[in-house]
């Protein structure tokens, strides 16, 4: 099987985000970049499927605004056989990203059987690329996948929706699965894996190579700013047993009369 896994490089979740001076994006100098957390589940699932069906290959694909291939190397250290980077300086919108991924997958010369990706990137939080890519490639897709099981040609995917409800999908490959937490436990890259990853093939393309142009842009962002800070709140000390009831009464009173939320 030809398995593809799409990955993104995002700021670490502990990063304090600071808009740049003209508000066109954020300050990116001091950021620690990580594999998008949801993509780790996608990479792991690709490895599990590969292990279960001999002769399969896993290709990691990334469309990147930061010239740094660390994330693809991580994917290869986790076991991906090769990878493709579509280099771009720009912050692409979801449509351009999907088009670039499609182009990169097509350029590999392999017809995908399975495409795994994270359900969302935790930077732009759009949740659009998997569905748009599926539409562009005329493939079925299932989002928010937290369960995967293959039985012959039938793949059973669990999609989690509101209130812990789970929809169970049945589909035949090829399919795009957008993965979330709970699907598996991503492995850590092993030291030999990291060493091997350095020698694995990494193909590079420009956006122009795969036919994505500025005209493909559908969404533009501006005015990046920090959310408004609230004025400091009220703080009550209830460490001592004899103060607790009084403090709680006061807070409940404020919730009713000041905040008017209960």
């Amino acid at each position: 099987m030809n398995i593809f896994v799409c990955v993104k490089q995002v700021p670490d979740t502990e990063t304090k985000i600071i808009p740049n001076s003209d508000g066109t994006f954020i300050e990116t100098n001091a950021i620690k970049w990580i594999v998008n957390p949801y993509d780790e589940y996608a990479i792991e699932q690709a490895m599990l499927v590969k292990a279960a069906s001999s002769g399969s290959t896993v290709t990691a694909v990334r469309v990147g605004a930061i010239k740094d291939t660390e994330v693809l190397r991580t994917a290869m250290a986790m076991g991906a056989d090769d990878s493709i980077l579509v280099e771009t300086e720009d912050n692409l919108d979801s449509f351009m990203t999907a088009k670039a991924l499609k182009g990169a997958i097509e350029k590999s010369g392999k017809t995908p059987d399975l495409i795994f990706m994270g359900k969302q990137a935790i930077d732009s939080d759009c949740l659009q690329v998997p569905s748009i890519l599926a539409q562009m490639m005329n493939l079925p897709s299932v989002s928010n996948v937290m369960g995967y099981e293959a039985n012959g040609n039938t793949i059973t995917l669990k999609r989690e929706v509101e209130g812990g409800t789970i929809e169970i999908y049945e589909v035949a490959a090829p399919v795009i699965a957008a993965c979330t937490k709970g699907l598996n436990t991503p492995r850590y890259p092993s030291l030999p894996g990291i060493m091997k990853a350095k020698r694995k093939p990494l193909a590079k393309h420009s956006l122009a190579d795969i036919g994505v142009t500025a005209d493909d842009r559908k969404v533009s962002y501006s005015n990046f700013e920090l959310p408004p800070e609230k004025p400091p709140g009220k703080k009550f000390d209830a460490m001592e047993d004899d103060t607790q009831l009084q403090v709680v009464k006061e807070v409940v009173g404020l919730l009713r009369t000041e905040a008017k939320v209960i």
Binding site: P11, T15, K16, I17, P19, I26, I122, D123, S124, D125, V219, S220, Y221, S222, N223, F224, E225, L226, P227
Partner: peptide
């Protein structure tokens, strides 16, 4: 954006 760490205008 970034889970609400900042806001942006979108067109």
């Amino acid at each position: 954006m970034f889970a609400g760490k900042c806001l942006a205008k979108v067109k």
